[in-house]
Nucleic acid binder design. Structure first.
Lengths: 212, 212
DNA sequence: GTCTATATAGGGATAGAC
DNA sequence: GTCTATCCCTATATAGAC
């Protein structure tokens, strides 16, 4: 039986990206890497095991299934984003929710690139996992933030251009994040302000909510 | 033997999105749909055949392999983008290449959403196809435009913010395109100007090439 | 041009030894 | 905790009938 990585315990949740002490974490790190590079569906347990240096069957000591590995990685994202929602709703002024959301997202994305990358690619796999079986173990598996964001994206009180701007701002963050190799030479201290500026230009535009 | 869809003949290349006269084209249409919705790797030939109403093996009369189907779809994109490169290089003034490129890309993307969607998702599958075998039949399989774009993206003479802006502008287009369902109620005549405005704000910024 | 039947490979997952 | 061996299933692809 696996050590005791309790159900709803989403990993010690370090901020950085370096992990890998326990075997369970080493598996997750390798899997994360492969899921990003080759995609969830295209990555076989055999590959993961090979990279780790032991056999396929050994994985099943640590995880019940392949989906279970994805789930564990997915929980890392939840650990990061869970704090956001209450914070947004706490503020009385709801007019700048989107700006405040983006603020958090950018910092979060840059500090946890890998997991966010996993989340951006492999959306289908994650969605299917949500629909799928193993929902009971880890609780109802809320993805409140996603829901909340989707709500803001299709806010019918916004003019079309406003909706485009919101969609676009997420696209900007995703694009820069996925183009990691292109910005390999750029340190975060330089990349982050540039990204913030551009995202600001996207939502700012002429002035939000002023479409003909 | 398949009708006579010669190697380098990339389909009659209609502008619209409605096709489906010959069986070969019907297969491609169904495959395109499934590859987008479920992903290339996750889509089986059995599914494609089922949707078409005949058996799996029949597909092999029209295409040599699954990759061959993807390749044929990929050629549709090439047919669209092939004209761009000469046009860009024709102009003497090279300072606004990126703006002109984006201009073309936006129109092209909106008028051929499906194929472009396929190209955005399934990048890995397409990349692997390029590396893979069947390269000889259709010629060296140039992807000049991709190469050219990548070159512009990492242009070392640009300040970091400029590179971020270029990457971001592509991200904006991709995001809006992939969010098709969110903009289902918006007609293109309304969506296109909004998209152009936002993309313009992204590249425009304070003024390209003026980063502290 | 489409079918059934089959070959072959690889996937996820389990059993039981060590 | 990791191994080997194996089961079962589905995938791509082929052979040959119609």
């Amino acid at each position: 039986m696996p050590p005791a990585a309790g159900p709803a315990a989403p990993e010690p949740a370090q901020s950085g990206e370096v992990r890998g002490s326990t075997t369970r974490e080493r598996i997750l790190d390798i899997a994360l890497d492969l899921f990003i590079r080759r995609g969830y569906a295209e990555t076989s347990l055999r590959e993961i095991a090979a990279e780790l240096g032991f056999s396929k069957a050994a994985l099943y000591y640590h995880f019940e299934s392949k989906q279970d590995i994805l789930l564990a990685l997915h929980m890392r994202v939840h650990g990061l984003t869970d704090g956001i929602l209450p914070m947004l709703q706490a503020e009385a002024d709801a007019s700048d929710v989107w700006e405040r959301l983006l603020d958090r997202l950018i910092g979060l994305a840059l500090q946890n690139r890998r997991v966010i990358e996993l989340h951006i690619r492999n959306q289908e796999a994650i969605a299917e996992m949500h629909r799928g079986a193993s929902l009971e173990k880890h609780g109802p598996l809320r993805h409140d933030v996603d829901q909340y964001v989707l709500g803001l994206l299709s806010d019918p009180s916004l003019p079309v251009e406003g909706r485009v701007r919101r969609t676009a701002s997420l696209g900007v963050i995703a694009a820069v994040l996925l183009a990691a190799s292109a910005f390999a030479d750029v340190p975060d201290v330089e990349l982050e302000p540039a990204l913030r500026t551009v995202v600001h230009d996207v939502i700012g535009g002429p002035a939000e909510g002023s479409a003909t």
